[in-house]
Design a protein around this nucleic acid. Structure first.
Length: 852
RNA sequence: GGGCGCUUAGCUCAGUUGGGAGAGCGCCGCCCUUACAAGGCGGAAGUCGGGGGUUCGAGCCCCUCAGCGCCCACCA
């Protein structure tokens, strides 16, 4: 055993992460059986720039569980993935290179992006765009891996996958084809929420509400057959040309006479019916609403349930379309009016139409300013519109109660940590109102493995799908050919055309359990790792990643994808505000790792319990670093005392046995906490024991272990107990402080602490030989009282004590009698008297201060 | 509108079968103690959100109110 002169935390991270890599310390052994394996479905971070402390928080917590499981003897399957496909990467490429994808442009093999992005985005073809995406994600993934390695994640880096990689594309397409064959995937032409900036449909799961300023405009519709005006209130008067009906509640007495009568729209004079529907709220505005195709999702419900016609005016670019909709008998005046609005954005059109309404006298009173929630794409900057388009969907229960119930049942089969997070899952599933829209009109994603026949007139026949066999996957229908066709038939009448869309990134990442475990590609691995054990993730993606993954596994395998889900809390900025890029309060991890060290950052992360929001707290990191330093020093000291012959002596000392009895209790406690996914409790308990161990036990046995007090048996006992406790403590801390524990372990043990068995409570318990924990407790209490007396007398801890008198219960005095020698030695106590009593009290007489 | 969580020392939090109110940080004081002075030891500090109930006994169980945070919701 060789102990360092002056142990230090410096350099441990470089030293040990390199060693772990070269030794393959965390390499997965795929010969193990399913029962022996613990498989973790690591969240693949979105590769679009930089990681922040929120990621570090959750991943560090998960790593403590992985390390615990490994030490418990499980073969841990712990891969990393990179979520590089999708809109996030596209946006990063657009900004990074100053380009935009125009799929109508041909491939330019000589294209080189500019050094710096220019003011005008350069339009490039789809293939060029995808190539830039492919390049940039590789760079980003390297940076991410560096950070994860520095943090000490014990993943097996040979198992890394990417969501745009070939295996992911194959799995996504295979699952899709099977979903389609079973009727779980379908396409439909329907109104969809549409982002006008990204020019793509978005799914319900990606929506968020934002409060926006708006105004109620009271607008007069005109009665026919001598009936007067009907005044409605709307926040979107610009949609009057898209109005198809008015609607009021069936019981609303004000409108009974109007139901099924016609009214004409202001400005355009279009005849629309007044209809009844229970969704109309008599309390809201004038109790009667204008239905437009489409202003919001309620319009879609009314449109569908009342079987109304479609009058579309909203273009996919967010501007009013050039051609006015079909208005029946409305005259050319209406068309002229509309012509003025065509090409305007929604905002511009509203401003103009309000002017026109004011001029025509059809605006009743002044607009009333309000704020109201408006649906946005969560990454978007302008409100979503609703446009009709052909899209692919997965059934997810949004339109099927029975299926929804099946997913609720799955949610109850899953073990949630913490349990209450299941509520979020349930309220999401219960609130679903559409199926899962998976197609995106984008470029960097998994293409749909689908071609369509073209009719002789060149029109697409969406019912005549051409699908590849599974052994051809992955395919790109824009460059690959359907079986039996030639390249010159692409786009030609009677030929075929590829589906131009890509799958949303969730349609791929919902398969991470399948992708990571080699579904369809590596049956042997799959059989040993699926269904997985743990899904660790953040709370904000329960409705997307967690739910979607359950949907896919339910359809494909008829099972849950994992048995347990651990949901971490939010990371808040140091002022306890939620961190977000838009607020600009994101804390980046690397500087903190460099300043405080990985163990300190891991310590901070592990102090946040599952599901508990935690602020970035450098103070906590400092505490973690101090703990690591303490471990270093205490280990050096204790090992210096025990020497190489550490375990030779029998544990006979009452104090030593009592300490080991307490240690056994700790090990049980900590193990139970880990089994319950409560790593934070495990850490807290271990830490508390350890500080007491340093303050009290080390002080109490110091002299005896040195051999300067007592006999050889006493010294041997102290040394043996020290060795046992130290070994256990180093292992208990190993899941958290992975670097410093590996370092101190290496001083006196063979092999990695992270591949060593988790401490057994029984081992300590046997050595303790039924000793009471009380002995250790009382010894520490008395020693503490003596220290306090010295501190209050402003004396050195080395000050001699002439006499101590302990008052205590007989039972505790009995315990004290067994450990008296150690207590006297540690406190420099000449005489120790005792007096039976009800409560613990200590009188201390200090020796006179020696003359200076 | 529905649901979940939180409310304990100045700050961040722990408190798992109901019986001693705790930790760290911060603050104050002391100590070069041969593992550790970018440290150690010790101290002060709380009507456990308010009210009511059950109990010999409630931070913990029940009811109720309030504040904060989050999730969900068909938000004209």
């Amino acid at each position: 055993m060789e102990l360092p002169e002056k142990p230090s935390l410096d350099g441990l991270e470089e030293k040990w992460s390199a060693r772990w890599e070269s030794d393959g310390a965390y390499r997965f052994d795929r010969t193990k059986s399913r029962a022996e394996i613990y498989a973790i479905d690591t969240p693949p971070p979105t590769v679009s720039g930089s990681l922040h402390m929120g990621s570090v928080f959750g991943y560090a917590q998960t790593d403590t569980i992985a390390r615990y499981r490994r030490m418990r003897g499980d073969e841990v399957f712990y891969p990393m993935g990179w979520d590089d496909n999708g809109l996030a990467t596209e946006r990063r490429v657009q900004n990074y290179y100053g380009v935009r994808c125009d799929p109508s442009l041909p491939y330019d093999p000589d294209f080189v992006p500019p050094e710096k992005p220019g003011k005008q985005a350069i339009p490039i073809g789809r293939q060029n765009f995808v190539e830039l995406c492919d390049q940039l994600v590789v760079e980003d993934e390297q940076k991410f891996e560096e950070l994860w390695r520095r943090l000490g994640l014990s993943v097996d880096w040979s198992l890394t996958y990417t969501t745009i990689g070939e295996q992911s594309r194959r799995a996504s397409q295979r699952a899709f084809l099977r979903n389609f064959a079973r009727g779980e995937a379908y396409q439909a032409e329907a109104p969809t929420l549409w982002d006008i900036d990204d020019r793509t449909a978005v799914a319900q799961a990606e929506l968020e509400d934002r409060e926006l300023a708006a105004a109620y405009h009271a607008v007069a519709f005109h009665g026919t057959d001598g009936q007067g005006d009907v005044v409605i209130e709307t926040t979107r008067p610009e949609l009057i040309p898209a109005c198809v009906a008015l609607v009021a509640h069936p019981d609303d007495e004000r409108y009974q006479a109007r139901f099924d009568q016609q009214v004409t729209t202001p400005l355009f004079g279009v005849s629309v019916p007044v209809l009844a529907h229970p969704l109309a709220d008599p309390e809201k505005g004038s109790g009667i609403a204008m239905i437009c195709t489409f202003g919001d999702t309620t319009d879609v419900v009314w449109w569908r349930e009342l079987q109304l016609p479609t009058r579309n005016i909203m273009g996919r670019d967010g501007r009013l379309v050039a051609e006015p909709p079909e208005w029946g008998s409305a005259g050319s005046e209406a068309a002229t009016r509309y012509a003025e609005l065509a090409g305007k954005t929604s905002k511009q059109a509203q401003a103009r139409i309000v002017e026109l309404l004011a001029e025509s006298g059809e605006l009743v009173g002044e607009p009333k300013p309000i704020t109201h929630p408006v649906k946005f794409y969560e990454r978007g900057s302008r409100p979503l519109e609703i446009v009709t388009s052909r899209q692919w969907y997965f059934r997810n229960g949004g339109r099927d109660q029975e299926l929804r119930d099946a997913f609720l049942t799955r949610g109850r089969e899953l073990h949630w940590h913490p349990q209450h997070m299941r509520q979020r899952y349930e309220s999401w599933v219960e609130g679903l109102n559409t199926d899962w829209l998976i197609s995106r009109q984008r470029f960097f994603g998994v293409p749909f493995p689908v071609w369509y026949r073209l009719r002789p007139d060149g029109e697409v026949d969406y019912d005549a799908l051409l699908l590849p066999s599974e052994d051809r996957l992955p395919v790109d229908p824009s460059s690959d050919l359907p079986d039996g066709f030639t390249a010159d038939q692409r786009g030609a009448p009677g030929g075929f055309i590829g589906d131009p869309d890509v799958m949303d990134t969730w349609a791929t990442s919902s398969l991470t359990p399948q992708i990571a475990t080699g579904w369809g590609d590596d049956d042997d691995l799959f059989s040993r790792t699926f269904p997985m054990d743990l899904r660790p993730q953040g709370p904000e993606i329960i409705r997307t990643w967690l739910f979607d993954t359950i949907v896919r596994a339910h359809f494909e395998h008829g099972t849950l994808p994992w048995s347990d889900a651990k949901i971490n809390g939010w990371v808040l900025d140091p002022d306890r505000k939620k961190m977000s890029k838009s607020k600009g309060n994101v804390v980046t991890p690397m500087p903190l790792l460099e300043q405080h060290g990985a163990d300190a950052v891991r310590y901070w992360a592990a102090s946040g319990r599952p599901g508990t929001d935690t602020a970035v707290d450098e103070g906590q990191m400092k505490v973690g670093r101090r703990l690591a330093t303490k471990l270093l020093n205490a280990s050096k000291f204790a090992l210096g005392v025990t020497g190489d012959a550490a375990t030779d002596g029998a544990v006979t000392g009452p104090l030593d046995r009592s300490m080991l009895a307490t240690l056994a209790e700790l090990i049980d406690d900590v193990t139970g906490a880990f089994e319950d996914y409560d790593y934070a409790r495990a850490l807290e308990r271990t830490e508390r024991f350890f500080w007491g161990f340093c303050d009290d036990y080390l002080e109490l046995v110091k002299q005896r272990a040195y051999g300067s007090v007592g006999d050889a048996a006493g010294a041997g006992s102290a040394r043996a107990a020290l060795a046992v406790a130290l070994s256990a403590l180093q292992r208990l801390f190993a899941p958290f402080l992975c670097y410093v524990t590996e370092e101190i372990w290496s001083w006196w043990q063979v092999g990695s602490v992270h591949r060593t068995a988790w401490p057994q409570a029984d081992e300590s318990r046997t050595l303790a030989d039924h000793a009471a924990q009380l002995d250790y407790l009382v010894a520490a209490d008395v020693l503490g009282a003596v220290r306090k007396a010295k501190s209050e007398a402003r004396r050195s801890m080395r000050a001699e004590v002439t006499r101590v008198c302990v008052t205590d219960t007989p039972e505790r005095l009995g315990a004290l009698a067994r450990v008296e020698a150690d207590v006297r030695g540690a406190g420099s106590i000449e005489h120790l008297d005792t007096e039976p009593g009800d409560t613990f009290a200590v009188e201390v007489e200090l020796a006179d201060e020696p003359a200076a």
